[in-house]
Computed example of a mutant assay.
Amino acid sequence: MKAYIGWITGATAAVLVAAGAITYAVAEDGGDSGPSTPAAESADAGFARDMAVHHQQAVEMSYIVRDRTKNTEVRRLAYDIAQTQANQRGMLLGWLDLWELPKVSAKPPMSWMGMGDMPERGDGSLMPGMATNAEMRKLGTLDGKQAEIFYLQLMTDHHKGGVHMAEGCVAKCTVGVEKSLAQGMVNAQRSEIGLMADMLKERGAQARS
């Protein structure tokens, strides 16, 4: 497991190095991969807006658990998730700036996936996998093993929702580099879901769903 987490940390560095190149490339992405400037309510814009919000919660969650446990593996995983998703969030918002599109929409979240009429789960949960406000507050009250387990459970749910959204972009987005980023999210988060399942098992727990 330590070797796997080490690989993830290395992968984060690679993502950070590539970020500038990808952000620049999207401005010129056209031709066979689709139009360089998507419409405001396109899948490309919708994914960028919604995943930026989704990622922000993962960053917050990860920094909370880093203050609630001294376990090296959990802290390392949380730091890596926070860094990776903060970087990706910056890329998504940067693309919206390049496209001169708003970062918020009058339409409900997930409308670009045909899920705009999805009922809110309550207490702050906006999209699939997102924790509620109550769950975020609870995480901030736990310590040690309890904090580790709850974080791993919340982040597993969060990743499952993220994979669902990213798969939607792979299927519906038209900008080539955005589709590539989405596929990278699918691959990385599926791997982390497996890792977190092992970490939960080591703690005598399992994912919530």
Rank of each mutant, 00 (worst) to 15 (best):
I149L: 05
K107H: 11
H158V: 00
L142A: 06
D123N: 12
L98Y: 04
P119S: 14
D123A: 12
V163P: 03
L96K: 08
G94R: 02
M113F: 07
P109I: 07
G162N: 09
G161R: 07
S111D: 10
G129F: 03
M115S: 09
H159V: 01
F150M: 13
E135W: 14
K107T: 12
R121S: 14
K138H: 15
L93Q: 13
L126W: 09
S105I: 06
N87C: 13
D97T: 14
E100S: 14
T156P: 00
N87H: 13
G140T: 09
Q153F: 01
G116C: 05
M136H: 11
E135R: 13
W112R: 03
P119F: 04
A131H: 02
M130L: 08
P128T: 06
G90R: 01
G122W: 12
N133Y: 10
M115W: 13
S111N: 08
A134I: 11
L152D: 00
T156S: 12
K145N: 09
R121N: 11
R89C: 04
T156I: 11
A106I: 12
A147T: 00
L98V: 09
M136S: 12
T132V: 06
L126K: 12
K103I: 06
M127G: 08
V163H: 05
E148N: 04
A147M: 01
G161N: 10
P128E: 02
M115G: 08
G116Y: 04
L154C: 09
